[in-house]
Nucleic acid binder design. Structure first.
Lengths: 226, 226
DNA sequence: CAAATGCTTCGACTACCATCGAAGTATGAA
DNA sequence: TTCATACTTCGATGGTAGTCGAAGCATTTG
């Protein structure tokens, strides 16, 4: 009678190891082909195709056909957020799996969460912005202050362009490794873009890590020092 | 890439319809018994027990044994947040049907918990008795003070008769609608008996609700006012 | 055109898991 | 003690979903 299968359906989609690996790979924000995802998940192309069909049917991913390839990406930031929260629960509750691997310190320090900065640096960014009075509000409900607008503009973010989007400007996302919030939304995405543009950081080609240059990290720290 | 399996396990736990219904029911923040959750999920008690074991083993819920009941609650706010984000994704993907209405307000306000008062009034009773110094101790381990003995005697409770029972005088019980403790034990039962005897309240014939008369509720409030 | 690559569909096999009956344990009630 | 209730464990069953081989489009390349 009480219909609650919706969350069961969504969870079941992410509940298969192969599909979970695909989703995790897509967390980088990149669009990947079916073959690449099959390789990520460790299954054959046929199996992967079946999984991708289900994920697309469930609205978790979106596929774009380009030539003889088909590129898949997460259908939206909310999916990334859901996956992040799952990782958070898994990290806290889970003596389910082995301890963190060797490549993890980098992932833990700075990584892409869909399209914005996550990890220690992400949490630091959010908390400093809050402490400096650039962002106001708590936890879920936050907004940019006047001073924050000046800060963003000075940093090279085109706020008018962001405002034109339907997408929310400020949003928070629970960081699975830190268990604290970091900044998401179009502002979070724009700030990460600026980090790339300023060459303070680059993206790891193979994983989700964000690699700060030494000078970039220093400038980042100085930016938030005040 | 290594983090895939763990999120798959977490998601798989929520991916079964029966378990998803249980988790949705626990989203209210209330602690529910295994029977209630079985009923909520539409499965037998045996099946429910299996599911609850898995959810507990996965760290999504925590169980507290209380008498012959076992109360389950979500293990933390992060689990609730994860479920919420799943609902968000489900809603956007067009799978969601809104959850059916809230439970009976009367049940929430005052009801019988075996033989003692539970619900808002039950929690209020316990907390006021504690605040007035009639009951001392915390959470699980509580006892009646000297002043409390006077109070009980004045209210018409035969403490000697209660002391003669093997049953503990003071006990606390986790309130499923309030998520806080209320008074159980022979004293809790005796106080409820007095409420009936004084005609401050009567018991609903068909349900677990306790119906306070208007004057009864006023006297009850005055009793705890001091 | 033909060959190669990328992906999807079909079919069959397999393994897992949810489910429930029955029996067992624990706590409370009479 | 004896009965009742709440829950757990065991065992058997049935359905379902993941998996891959083989074949079938579709697109690009030569």
């Amino acid at each position: 009678m009480k219909e609650g299968p919706s969350i069961a359906q969504i969870a079941a989609l992410a509940g298969d190891p192969a599909r979970a690996n695909m989703l995790a790979a897509l967390m980088s924000g990149k669009a990947l082909t079916a073959s690449e995802l099959a390789n990520e998940a460790g299954v054959t192309l046929q199996t992967a195709s079946s999984h991708l069909g289900k994920l697309e049917g469930g609205g978790l991913i979106a596929g774009v056909k380009q030539g003889r390839h088909r590129y898949f990406r997460l259908s939206g930031g909310d999916v990334a957020e859901m996956l992040e929260s799952m990782m958070g629960v898994a990290a806290r509750a889970g003596h389910l799996r082995t301890r963190t691997g060797p490549s993890d310190p980098m992932i833990r320090k700075a990584r892409v969460c869909y399209d914005h900065l996550a990890g220690e640096m992400g949490v630091q960014l959010f908390e400093r912005l809050t402490a400096l009075g650039h962002i106001a509000g708590r936890d879920a409900d936050v907004h940019l202050t006047r001073r924050g607008e000046d800060f963003a503009a000075k940093f090279g973010v085109d706020l008018q362009a962001l405002a034109a989007q339907r997408r929310p400007l400020c949003k928070t996302c629970l960081d699975w490794s830190m268990r604290r919030h970091h900044l998401a939304g179009s502002l979070g995405a724009a700030l990460l873009e600026r980090l790339y543009a300023l060459k303070w950081a680059t993206r790891d080609k193979h994983g989700r890590a964000i690699l700060f240059s030494r000078s970039g990290e220093a400038k980042f720290a100085k930016l938030l020092a005040r």
